[in-house]
Simulated scan of single mutants.
Amino acid sequence: MPHPTDLRPPFDRDSATAKVRAAEDAWNSCDPHRVSLAYSEDSTWRNRDQFVQGREAIREFLAGKWQTELDYRLMKDLWSFDGNRIAVRFQYEYHTAGGQWWRAYGNELWEFDAEGLMRRREASINDLAITESERKFRWPAGGPRPAEPAAVLCIA
């Protein structure tokens, strides 16, 4: 898999799909430093009701996220692309320290600079409490989603 910044705009279907999968793999590592390197130094985020500015703030945000969202597993799917922008739909599952499992559904809008770093991310996310038996994503935590069989994002 290419490094995320090897994939630069303008995007075609193959490079946009590869960019989404590279982001998914990085986020599934739950490594805030690794993930933050895909964002420009002055990247701006809207994540739910939070606004985050800059790579260091993104790193801190992600570190806090993965301290509370345990056994995190994420799937991203390319929705659309054009030039230096990509739209993604995603789902992820995690549990809290108290044992409550959650599935989060959402959409992200991404904008990249010429070097392939994300300079803008807007995420709209909805959460659904689930039971452990309702989980869909059961590959080992901290690793990439298996390539086969192909997993499909579901609405419910």
Rank of each mutant, 00 (worst) to 15 (best):
D14W: 06
D14G: 01
D14F: 05
A16R: 09
A16V: 13
A16Y: 09
A16T: 10
A16D: 03
A18I: 08
V20K: 14
R21H: 13
A22F: 11
A23W: 12
A23S: 14
A23G: 10
E24S: 10
E24G: 00
D25I: 02
D25P: 00
D25S: 10
A26W: 04
A26Q: 08
W27K: 06
S29D: 01
C30S: 10
D31Q: 07
P32G: 06
P32I: 07
P32H: 11
H33T: 08
R34F: 03
R34P: 00
V35C: 11
V35D: 00
S36Q: 09
S36L: 10
L37V: 04
L37N: 01
A38W: 00
A38I: 01
A38N: 04
Y39N: 06
Y39S: 06
S40V: 03
E41R: 03
E41A: 14
E41P: 00
E41Y: 02
D42I: 03
D42V: 11
D42A: 13
S43H: 09
S43N: 06
T44S: 05
W45A: 07
W45K: 01
W45Q: 03
N47M: 14
N47C: 07
N47E: 13
R48V: 05
R48Y: 06
R48N: 08
D49N: 07
D49P: 00
Q50Y: 07
Q50T: 03
F51Q: 07
F51E: 08
F51R: 10
V52S: 01
V52Q: 01
Q53V: 04
G54T: 01
G54N: 00
G54W: 00
G54K: 00
R55C: 02
I58N: 05
I58F: 01
I58E: 07
R59G: 01
E60N: 09
E60D: 08
E60H: 12
E60C: 02
F61Y: 14
F61L: 15
L62D: 04
L62E: 05
L62K: 04
L62Q: 04
A63Q: 14
A63G: 05
G64P: 03
G64E: 13
G64N: 12
W66M: 06
Q67R: 15
T68V: 15
T68G: 15
E69V: 08
E69S: 15
E69A: 15
L70N: 10
L70F: 01
L70T: 01
D71T: 07
D71E: 15
D71W: 08
Y72T: 08
Y72C: 14
Y72W: 13
Y72D: 11
R73V: 00
L74A: 13
L74D: 12
L74S: 11
L74H: 13
M75S: 08
M75Y: 04
